[in-house]
Each structure stands twice: as C-alpha cells, then as structure tokens.
Nucleic acid binder design. Structure first.
Length: 264
DNA sequence: ATGGTAGCGCTGCTA
C-alpha cells in the first residue's frame, strides 16, 4: 500500500497538478493540506473519476485538509471532537480508515513568530494532538499520522541551522512536541529509509530557494510500529515541485508491504 | 537591506 502526503497550497490553483500526479504516482491514500476550499467547492467528482473516494474538512479560504483513498474510506472524523482546540474554527485534522490503516491527516499551525500567541497555541495544538491520539488510539494498532507539521524535527532537516536561529519550526519546544508523538509510539517512516541530511519537502517560493537547495523537511509520515515494520520504501517527489505553478511543498510517499497474516 | 513569491480576493493578510 502506498501512502502519500502533500501540502498543495490551494487545491483550486493546484487541481491540474494533483490530478496529473495521482495518475502517475498512483498512491492508495493521499493526504492533502491547505486545500483553501469550503466543503461545497471540493472537487469530489474529479477524484472519483480517477478512482478515489475522498473526505474533506474545509473552512473557506484558509487551511483545509482531505484524505483520498482507492482502498476504502470509512469512519471519517473531523477535528479533535470533545477536546478543546487551541485553533478552534480552523480545519486542520481529518481522519479515516483506509485499507486497514487509521489514516490521520494534519495541518499543524505555522506559529508565525517565536513567543507570539500563535506560537504558544501551535505548541498547545501539538499537545492536543498527542492527547487526542492517547484517548482514541493505541500504539499497537495500525495508524499513520501524515501531514505538514511545520516543524523540522532535527538540524539535518533544514538547509542551514544557523539561518533558522530564532525562527519557528526548529525551536526546542516545537521539536519536543513532535518528540512527544514519537514517545507515544510513532516512528518517522522517512527516517526508516534515509539518514541523510538535506532531504527536504518544502522550499519557500522566494529567492529561488528550491533551486538553491534551501529547504526544510516539515512534511512527515509518522506511523505506529505495526505499520513501521511494513515500510519498504520512501520518497520525496521533488519533480512535483518543478514546472508550471508548483506548490511550495513536494509530496512524500511511503510504500508498505502487505500486512503479515497473524494466522499464517 | 527585516528583503523575496504565491494565493486569496480586493486591502492587506497568511505562509
């Protein structure tokens, strides 16, 4: 099973690129962030024409997340439910069961400036995500948490640690919040496959950052151990960051082997 | 030099 995540920075602007990408990458499950669409504008039919069911959690002109699946899509959840959301009103989480895996698609708040109210609530949002996982799920069930985390977990995940001193995405508290998800029982699937520095998923549109290799790895696929042991391959599709009207993020893919039959 | 670009939507905000 092929899992993927992609921050598309407006699905309205990116739909032709997403359709083209689905046709050649053929993920079984694709998580989208920053659709920037209300639910009534989500292109359900365009995706069903390509063989994908979909669930969207939209807001309007900002945020918005979706799960697409061609291996079934059941038990859709939108948001944190009963838990108080530090970004109440934003559409930043949608979950569904696809092909036997609980798929959770997130768009973590950006945080804007270190020390701002937005930054404090970003940390609270990540804490809420861990609490939500702990309440509703267990680390021994097949679960994948994919999305734009707006956190680079380690220095090797940014082009220049010096350039990010004092900036969001790399601070100790943000990294500790993501480490908290790993402590609960999640594994960074991409890091199961690659140890290298300089493997990025996001490049600012400005200053020619993509072509100068000035990027960050902030789009993550975190999986529980039953999924981690099935990981056979991972990839950042940098080609999708090139050409006409690209998103500022590239898609991340993770391939899973078929689950082992406990009866076998 | 607090820069630069893209998207939303129409003035400036968000990333």
């Amino acid at each position: 099973m092929r899992l993927a995540t992609w921050n598309v920075n407006s699905l309205k602007a990116r739909l032709p690129r997403v359709e083209e990408w689905l046709a050649y990458a053929r993920p079984d499950v694709l998580c989208l962030q920053e659709t920037k669409l209300p639910d009534e504008a989500f292109p359900t039919m365009a995706f069903s024409a390509l063989g994908y069911e979909s669930a969207h959690h939209g807001q309007g002109r900002w945020n918005g997340v979706a799960v697409l699946s061609r291996v079934g899509l059941h038990d859709v959840e939108r948001g944190f439910g009963d838990l108080p959301d530090p970004y109440e009103g934003d559409a930043r989480l949608v979950a569904a069961t696809c092909g036997g895996v609980r798929v959770v698609c997130v768009y973590v708040p950006n945080g804007r400036e270190v020390g701002s109210d937005f930054y404090d609530r970003k940390l609270a949002w990540l804490g809420c995500l861990r609490e939500w996982l702990a309440r509703h799920h267990a680390p021994d069930e097949p679960l994948a948490l994919l999305g734009d985390f707006n956190v680079a977990p380690e220095d090797r995940d940014v082009w220049s640690p010096e350039a990010f001193v004092g900036s969001t995405h790399v601070t100790g508290p943000e990294r500790a919040a993501v480490a908290g998800l790993r402590e609960w029982g999640l594994v960074d699937a991409f890091r199961r496959c690659y140890e290298d520095a300089g493997l990025f998923t996001y490049w600012d549109y400005r200053r020619g950052d993509f072509h100068q290799h000035r990027g960050m790895r902030i789009d993550l696929v975190l999986v529980t151990e039953p999924v981690a042991e099935r990981v056979v391959y991972a990839l950042v599709d940098r080609n999708a960051r090139k050409g006409q009207q690209p998103s500022d993020h590239a898609p991340v893919l993770v391939d899973l082997a078929d689950p082992t039959d406990p009866a076998a």
